[in-house]
Design a protein around this nucleic acid. Structure first.
Length: 306
DNA sequence: AAGCTTTGACCTATA
DNA sequence: TTATAGGTCAAAGCT
């Protein structure tokens, strides 16, 4: 299942899917692979007995991810934050930081096409990481922090910021988000922006904490989407790239045909094509060779899957 | 005109 | 009960 290309997926591709891709077909709350980070990091929204999302959970439930491919789209894997921890992490084009490099091999998934069960079932890893990262002594009091394990602290011994282009465009995760508030909170020097999913009746929300320079320092997801990613996104005329939405859609309807191989949507609230951006960034700023070689492969394989 | 962001006010939970 | 902080509302303005 195209696994060989997964390791080539850049970290930024994964981060780009900052949304909790947890479209539910039923109350079973089946989630797709991209939730793995949330599992480890606590973004995973927990369900209460009433079926309502339970936010800020400290103990993410066991991840019911099927490792079979039929619940999983390649594009979702491409977007999966899981790979953020892979050995193929990239230098952030915007920050110059090495995102998610803090695992130091203990949670190295570089050779894993999919989150390993033991990792999924060990939320304490996140706790430990946080404890090391932040020196948190009282995890009971910090469960909220754990639940909202941020990208910046995910197994890292130093703050890792998400390149601003990944989120600052307001959800490069294929979903539409509408900002409904902003607040300066005490616990953080950076203001928080509050977003709601624009899909009708979708209660999914996210909170983005960003520094003054536009860099995202924290992303908190609340609730899961009760719908697939929008299939059609706005895009500039003449665009020929595939959007993450289109890719994701295939997960729900594998037989669907994506007419355009590379939907490059630049609509700020719908989707954003990071792969192109990343490629450009890598080429122009870092002269990345691997990505230059492998990105076309990814695109080619994407087309093959259609 | 629709949909978005901004932003002060308001609501709610917690200590 | 009150103070505080975080989250949300909603009117206004913008694109």
């Amino acid at each position: 299942f195209l696994l060989p290309t997964m390791s080539s997926t850049s970290f930024t591709d994964l981060l780009a899917s900052s949304g909790v891709d947890c479209y539910e077909k039923d109350e079973d709350f089946r989630v797709s692979g991209s939730v793995s980070l949330y599992q480890n990091g606590g973004f995973y929204p927990e369900r209460t007995g009433s079926g309502l999302p339970k936010f800020k959970t400290a103990q993410p439930p066991p991840l019911p991810i099927s490792q079979s491919s039929h619940h999983f789209a390649f594009s979702d894997f491409l977007e999966s934050p899981l790979l953020l921890s892979s050995s193929h992490t990239l230098i952030s084009p915007t920050t110059g930081a090495f995102p998610f490099q803090g695992f130091n091999g203990t949670n190295n998934h570089s050779d894993l096409p999919w989150p390993q069960p033991q990792l999924q079932s060990q939320p304490s890893n996140a706790s430990s990481a946080l404890q090391e990262t932040y020196g948190v002594q009282d995890l009971q009091k910090k469960q909220d922090l754990i639940a909202r394990q941020t990208i910046q602290g995910f197994g890292s011994d130093r703050q890792m910021k998400v390149p601003s282009y990944m989120v600052s465009r307001n959800s490069n995760d294929g979903y539409g988000w509408r900002k409904y508030g902003q607040k300066q909170v005490k616990k953080s020097e950076n203001p928080r922006s509050y977003f709601k999913c624009t899909y009708p009746n979708c209660v999914s929300k996210k909170i983005v904490e960003s520094a003054s320079d536009g860099q995202i320092t924290e992303i908190i997801y609340k609730g899961g989407h009760n719908h697939p990613k929008p299939e059609f996104t706005k895009r500039p005329p003449g665009s020929t790239s595939i959007s993450s939405s289109s890719n994701a859609r295939r997960m729900f309807n594998p037989s669907s045909v994506v007419s355009e191989p590379h939907d490059q949507s630049e609509n700020s609230s719908i989707s954003f094509d990071y792969s192109d951006l990343e490629q450009k960034s890598l080429k122009s700023e870092y002269g990345e060779v691997d990505e230059e070689e492998e990105q076309p492969e990814i695109k080619r394989l994407k087309r093959e899957g259609e």
